[in-house]
Design a protein around this nucleic acid. Sequence first.
DNA 1: TTTTTGATTTACCGATCGGTAAAATAATAT
DNA 2: ATATTATTTTACCGATCGGTAAATCAAAAA
Lengths: 184, 184
Amino acid sequence: MATRMGNKTRQAILEAAREAFASKSYAEVSMEDIAKIAHVKKPLIYYYFPSKEDLFKEAWDEAFRDLEDKVFGPKEEEGKYVRKVKQFLRAYIDFLRNDRKSLRLIEREKNKFYSEKSKNWQYMKKRYDVFVQQVADVIASETGNSSPEFARAITDIVGSSALLPEGQMSPKTLELIIIKGLKP
Amino acid sequence: MATRMGNKTRQAILEAAREAFASKSYAEVSMEDIAKIAHVKKPLIYYYFPSKEDLFKEAWDEAFRDLEDKVFGPKEEEGKYVRKVKQFLRAYIDFLRNDRKSLRLIEREKNKFYSEKSKNWQYMKKRYDVFVQQVADVIASETGNSSPEFARAITDIVGSSALLPEGQMSPKTLELIIIKGLKP
DNA sequence: TTTTTGATTTACCGATCGGTAAAATAATAT
DNA sequence: ATATTATTTTACCGATCGGTAAATCAAAAA
């Protein structure tokens, strides 16, 4: 009854998918690619996931789970005099440094749902929108006025940086740019 | 000797390609798609262009030609007391409003050349890098210090906005965000 | 008018795509 | 040991991909 070996295989496939979708776009990644990374034959993927789209949706979900956990989760400087926005920004940029994979996956397909109208893609759009709204809320909690447009601009800049080769956009500079936008 | 009807057909195909590559990614666009838009059969494309990659390269070139003409070309407020950076920014955002197609094409594939090492893609990378450098120069000509990273951030933000549905990111807000980054 | 040349289409190729059926394997339950 | 169930593989499918060869059509040259 309780699944046997399957759980580990399923997780391995999902992990392989996350890696693949972080390195190439959804359209460019083939199920064969994912199978190879997971050291598995292609049809086995379909034993655990109904379709490429569903597999991507789960990868998308896990990426956002990781992102939101680290960025909105408990901070080390909790309760200190450090501003909430500063904490958020630090965590966001740390995430960019340490978990580029998730941000890359998101960045590659964050515009896809403007053309794809299927249920899965609309679900992913919602997940993305909610994240941007949460960012807007953090900013609004201090500056008083935070347009969703500004929150979107921030996530776009961080996202773009994630697709650059490492070292191309220094986290320090990135932080500075965003803080300047926050100020007046 | 002087080409007959061909020129117009060639241009129609190239125009169709620009439209197609602006609406979907390189990998998602098929030669069949382009043929349909151009009201032409697929093999005719290969009469004028050696490959999909070469066709895309030409579309890429035209997009940058249009962009650079409008953004670095002669300005209406030339010679006025209006700062050069302001003029550039105005032109850039006007271009975003009026010629979304070019910016979309660029934005969709601006990271492709980090994985594709072919001659064509390296050429396109260079073309993109030159543009960013020109932006950096404009900024440096007034603020004195302009990191290429900041120029890149600006083009990333404008590019991201281009892929959003119209009206999602107001040009005014966008301008404001960039100006704030420019200030101190 | 006939011939030549440029332009366009029809018919097709091998490779790869996402996905399925069914057989083979491996682990558990009886 | 045997039957059952979960897991994995082999073999394949139709559709679509980028691209090619050759036939057809249309316009200019002779």
